[in-house]
Each structure stands twice: as C-alpha cells, then as structure tokens.
Design a protein around this nucleic acid. Sequence first.
DNA 1: AAGTGGTCTAGACCACAAC
DNA 2: TTGTGGTCTAGACCACTTA
Lengths: 246, 246
Amino acid sequence: MPPKNTQPKYRQIADYLREGILNGTFPAGQPLPSEEALAKQFGVTRPTVRQGLTELRASGLVEVIMGRGTFARSPQSRPSLTRPRGVRLAPDGRYMEADGIQWTNAEPPVATRTDAPLALADLLRIPPGEPMFTYDALQTADHGRLRQLHRTYVPFSVLVDTKHEEEAPLPAPELYVTLAELGHELHFTEYVRTRMPLPDQAQALRLPEGVPLLHVIRVTLTEGDKPLALEEFHLPGDDLELSFRL
Amino acid sequence: MPPKNTQPKYRQIADYLREGILNGTFPAGQPLPSEEALAKQFGVTRPTVRQGLTELRASGLVEVIMGRGTFARSPQSRPSLTRPRGVRLAPDGRYMEADGIQWTNAEPPVATRTDAPLALADLLRIPPGEPMFTYDALQTADHGRLRQLHRTYVPFSVLVDTKHEEEAPLPAPELYVTLAELGHELHFTEYVRTRMPLPDQAQALRLPEGVPLLHVIRVTLTEGDKPLALEEFHLPGDDLELSFRL
DNA sequence: AAGTGGTCTAGACCACAAC
DNA sequence: TTGTGGTCTAGACCACTTA
C-alpha cells in the first residue's frame, strides 16, 4: 500500500485560505469568499468548508461577523500599544504605573477573603490555605477600548498589628503606600504566562475568537525579598505587548 | 415572541464538560466520556458532540489521542518552568542567560540576509528595507523537552568598518561579545506578545492544540539607547512562564 | 475484534444583516 | 428578499489503538 500523503479536504481549504491571508491575497479586513462559494470551488459540502474555517478562527486568522461574512484578520503586525511594565515612586510618596494608564473600574470592585491556593501560596511564601484579602476588578481605560482584569491578594499575616487587620486595604496603587508605611522599601517581580481565555474572560475583555490572554502575576517584595502582596492581571493578547528593561 | 434564551446544544455540552474539568469531575489526564456516550447522554448526534469538543480543544482544555479518547488537560495550574529573563556579564567577558539554560541547535542554524520589515526597522531605528544579517535556529534543551525558535537580526549598518562587514557574526551569546567589542556597554529591552501559532510553529515547538505562543523580542542597546541588534524568541505558552525583576 | 476519534455527505431549517 | 453564517440530523466509511 502506498503511504497516504493527501491532506484532508478541510485542511486543504484551511491551508489555501491561510496562505492567502498571509500573502495578501485576502487582505486584512476584507471578506473571504462565502462558505457556499468555497464549497462549490472545492467541490465539497458546506460542513466541510466550515471545518476548515473553524481552524482559522481558532488561530485568530479570521473573524466572523454574523450575517455579513468571514473576514481576514491582520495577522502578525505590530501591536498598537506597548505597555512598559514597572512601578515608579513619585516624590510625594505615591506610586505610579510606568505606562501611565489611568484605569477606572468598570464595576465596583469586589472585595472578598480567599484561602490561598497552592500556586499563590508558593509565590507569597505562606502556607496553603492562609486567608488573604482579595480585590477583584474589571478595569477600563481610553473610553473602554483598553480592558484588563485585575485581582489583588494580600495575606492576613502581612497586615497583623496594623490598622488593616480588620479592614481590607485599598488595592494598588494605594496598596503600595500602605505596604511602604510598614517600613519596607518595595520592589517587584512579574511572571508572564499565556493561555486561551475561559468564556467569561473572553467576554469581559471583549476578546475575538482565537486570541489568547496574557496572564501577569506581580509580586510585591521587601528589600529582603519577603513577599508582601500579589496581583494578577489578565490582558488581551491581541494588539498589546509588554515591555521590560532587563 | 419570547426572547430565545436557550444555548445551542453543542455549547451546553461544552459548558458541561468545561465545568467538569475545572471542578475536578473530569480530572486532568483522565478520559472524558466517548463521543458516542455523550451523544446518547445529551440526545444528539455525534457531529453535535464534536462541535462542542472542538471548542474545548481550541481553548486547550482537552487533548485528543487518536484511537484512545479525549482527555482533560490540567488547566490553570502552575507552569513547571520559570525562566528568569536577563543577560549576565561574566568576569571573563562572556555573556550568559539568566535562566542558565544550555541550548543546542536541533538543526544547523540558517544564516541569511533579510531586508528589514517595517515592524523590526522601527524597533532597530533603521530605515525599512535596510539589509540585516539573519540567523534562524530551532533550539532544544533538556533532551528535547524544552524548545524555542530563535531568530537574530543584525543590521549591516551596525557592522560597517568591522571584520564582520562581509562575514556574518555569530548569534547570541557570542553576538553580545562582538557588539561589546565595538566599545559599547550593552543593555537589553524585551517586548512580550502572545498569539496562536501557525501550523509550522506548532509542529516545531510540539505544541498541543489550543496552546498559544509567547513571542519575545529582545533588543540589544548601547548605553545611549541606540539599538544594535534584535532577537526573536517563539516559546511554547503551556507549562512555561517568564519572570522579570522590575 | 471492539472501541475510539477523523472525515465527509446531503441535506434541513434558523438567525441576522443589508438592500 | 437575498445572502450571509449558525445549528443540527442521520447516517457512512476510514484510521488508529488496545486487547
């Protein structure tokens, strides 16, 4: 038996379209041929065409607008926004993000208490299960065009013998002032990961199909590298890059 | 007419399975019910079940092994590897990656000349179209368990009046020595992006379905912030995180 | 051999957008 | 009204894995 070296039809269709999108035959923003037209062109039925298109959607190369058509997305172009990561200490004792973005909470932030899951306990060097103050916020800027999910964790143990023992501290950037007032010189480490969003994350961040998340964990440390607090950021992976000075 | 508030069947199936994966009903590494079983359970046909499973695949929650079944993937757990980003200058004048990983080229690296595309010309502050030395390598470490795509760009203009005017310089880390010998004190900025891989990238990095890429651009600069060279890294987005000290 | 997922057909009917 | 994509059926046959 000769080896089978033919690709499945739906993949040939996907390859044809991807090729066209990357080489400019199907320019970004322009509609692809309709599913019906592709079915006729390739001599297959519509479900087969759709199977190919599903691949392109999952890889973010294509965007579907209901009732209008399937559109090529700009692929590997430059992100429109670069966010320098860092925290600056102003002369007045306040802290500012290096990117200078002014966020507002889309909804009132949710303050709760969480027991530290293993992964976070590890980064905070506290026992798993230790209670933490938790802040949860969906933040927007630039009239809703920028979005991020922001979560703050402060272990109870960090705040014993302070006025915050019973009352939740404010989230960053005020949190940094609170921590600095405990007598520490703060510094920060960030951990960057990526993954595909869950449906609720995709909705909150208005992510198109096939667009991953950037997941940033920022740990606030003392000068002696003792972890004080942890923040989680979920950022849209399209049209955004982070920059770090090494 | 009452508003239609029923989810499509395939999405109900996807939600049911995703829920089960996240809450432990379907533990990571364990097989989900077969497509046939799910079809019977939900009273639908197999294509409908598969449409739901396609969603979970694209979001990386599920892995399919041909002939064996569909398996839950560990979702948001901690990555097994943290790579501190940075470059260290050893006393002997050599440079080392902060993560200490020793990479070997899976295949001989490909040296070519490229004309600077707009996005890279911008970061290197050279005119678009200026020729650059280019190195391309698929690197592995830890017996092939770690993989990264590495590309180096050095504009011709940086190397005029040096012995490398005609002969391509070696890629990093030797490149840094070469650049330092031009009399510069080097520093580095990294830009982090994410996106879904193209098929060839997914294959080279052995990425499972639904796993995004980390795309890191490192620019080597003089003490006066003049860009000298640029490297691109494509890293698997699962099971890996980058860390940066701010 | 039995069980799994992979590919594909040939339709049907619906929801949405533009004209 | 027409054209687009969205959902779903009821199969068929194939390829791969395990026993």
